[in-house]
Structure formats: structure tokens, C-alpha cells
Amino acid sequence: MVVSYINITIKLALGLLSIVMVINFTGKGNLAPSSASDQVQNYVLGGIIGGVIYNENIGLLQYFIILLIWVCLVLSLRWLKTNSAFFKKAIDGEPSLLISRGKLDTEACRKAGLTAHEIMFKLRSNNIYSIRNVKQAVLEQNGQLIIVMSGEENPRYPLITDGTIQAQALDSIDKTEEWLLERLKEQGVESVSDVFLAEYENGNLNIVLY
């Protein structure tokens, strides 16, 4: 039995080290998952450790190789999401616009798997009792509903993230892409792809370049 406990301890240590390594390489996203892929990779790791740790038929070398494969897959997935907007959208999806200018998009709600009762519950949780008072309500990938009320001047989302224009954020402040491109040129920015982050606050466009 002593040998079994030693194997279990080593397997636990390897699992812990793999978690620490992934967090250090990918940031703190695994600690507070913001997308489905972040949550799934945590579940997979839990399944690997839980399924292997007490299985005497799987040796330390096999277990190490399995963890190494998992780490490589997670790092590769993170790299693709960071460097390709197409892969990020394909892997994590994108926010869903449920309410626009007081009108509820029933088709978007159906695709998101939300009933009318669930939507109203989310609104009531934010002290909102009528969709007519909502200028924009967006369902994030993690299930959180972000609400912009009628009359709000500042968007809840940045206008540009990772070199990509966020059309929904522009719509929430009644601006167009042409307006945004013109504002970028005024600040000496020729291409949207050069912008890491652009926020709009109180009439000012704050830009962070790569």
C-alpha cells in the first residue's frame, strides 16, 4: 500500500504542476473561465486526474504523457484564439444580441436556449421590469447578460478589441464604422488591425495600439 500512496502523491503533484504551468502560460483565464472552451479544458483536466490517479494500470509515464498532450492542446488552443479572430469565434462563439432598442429578438433567444421567463428573470435581477427601457441586451459566452439602458451615452463594450471592430458596441452609441475609421485617422491610426483596444467614454476615443 505504501507504493500505491507514493504513486498517487506523484500523480497529484504532476497534475498540480500541469495546472500551474498552463495558468502561467495562458494567464488567469482558467481561474475564472469566461468562455466555454476555458470551462471544458478544466473539466477535461479534472477527468484526467480523477480517472487516472487511482488507476494502478496506468503508470506514471503514461500519465505524464497524457498530461503533456493536454497541456499542448490547451496552449495550442489559446494561441489560436489569441492570434486568429476566426478561430476565436469558431471556438468560443460570440455574444448574442437579445434586445435592441426595446425589441426582443425571439430567434436569438431560441438559439441561446433561453425562455421568456429566463430573460425576464435576468432583467429583474438587474432591477429592470420592461424590455422597452432596454436599449441593448447582450448575452455573453459565459451566460452573463450585459444591459445598456436607454439614454446611456457610454457603451458597455469597447469599440475595438484585438484589431476587430465591435459592431454591436457601435450600434449602442448610434455610431457607424465610417465614423470610427475617421476618428482613428484623426489620431494617426491608419488600420484597425493596429489597434489592440479602443474605448469610447464621454465623447473621447481612447486607443491602445499593439
Rank of each mutant, 00 (worst) to 15 (best):
residue 103 K to H: 09
residue 51 G to K: 08
residue 55 N to I: 05
residue 100 S to W: 09
residue 73 L to H: 00
residue 71 V to N: 06
residue 108 A to D: 01
residue 109 C to V: 01
residue 97 L to T: 04
residue 111 K to P: 02
residue 64 F to P: 01
residue 82 T to L: 13
residue 57 N to R: 14
residue 79 W to A: 15
residue 54 Y to R: 02
residue 89 K to D: 05
residue 114 L to D: 06
residue 81 K to A: 14
residue 64 F to R: 05
residue 85 A to F: 09
residue 71 V to D: 04
residue 110 R to N: 10
residue 103 K to M: 11
residue 78 R to Q: 00
residue 90 A to R: 08
residue 88 K to Q: 12
residue 44 V to Q: 02
residue 117 H to K: 14
residue 103 K to Q: 10
residue 72 C to P: 00
residue 76 S to D: 00
residue 105 D to M: 04
residue 48 I to K: 04
residue 64 F to L: 15
residue 85 A to C: 03
residue 64 F to N: 01
residue 41 Q to T: 13
residue 92 D to S: 07
residue 49 I to H: 03
residue 40 V to D: 00
residue 39 Q to F: 14
residue 81 K to L: 05
residue 45 L to N: 01
residue 111 K to N: 11
residue 95 P to V: 11
residue 52 V to F: 09
residue 53 I to N: 06
residue 82 T to Y: 10
residue 93 G to N: 08
residue 77 L to E: 10
residue 88 K to T: 08
residue 58 I to P: 13
residue 50 G to H: 05
residue 82 T to H: 14
residue 93 G to P: 00
residue 86 F to E: 10
residue 55 N to V: 07
residue 79 W to K: 13
residue 69 I to T: 11
residue 56 E to D: 13
residue 56 E to C: 02
residue 101 R to I: 02
residue 58 I to F: 05
residue 91 I to L: 12
residue 44 V to E: 03
residue 83 N to C: 05
residue 71 V to Y: 02
residue 70 W to I: 02
residue 56 E to P: 04
residue 93 G to V: 09
residue 44 V to R: 05
residue 104 L to I: 15
residue 81 K to H: 06
residue 116 A to P: 03
residue 67 L to E: 04
residue 51 G to W: 11
residue 71 V to W: 07
residue 89 K to F: 06
residue 92 D to I: 01
residue 54 Y to N: 15
residue 60 L to R: 04
residue 82 T to M: 12
residue 61 L to S: 07
residue 72 C to N: 09
residue 69 I to C: 14
residue 95 P to Y: 07
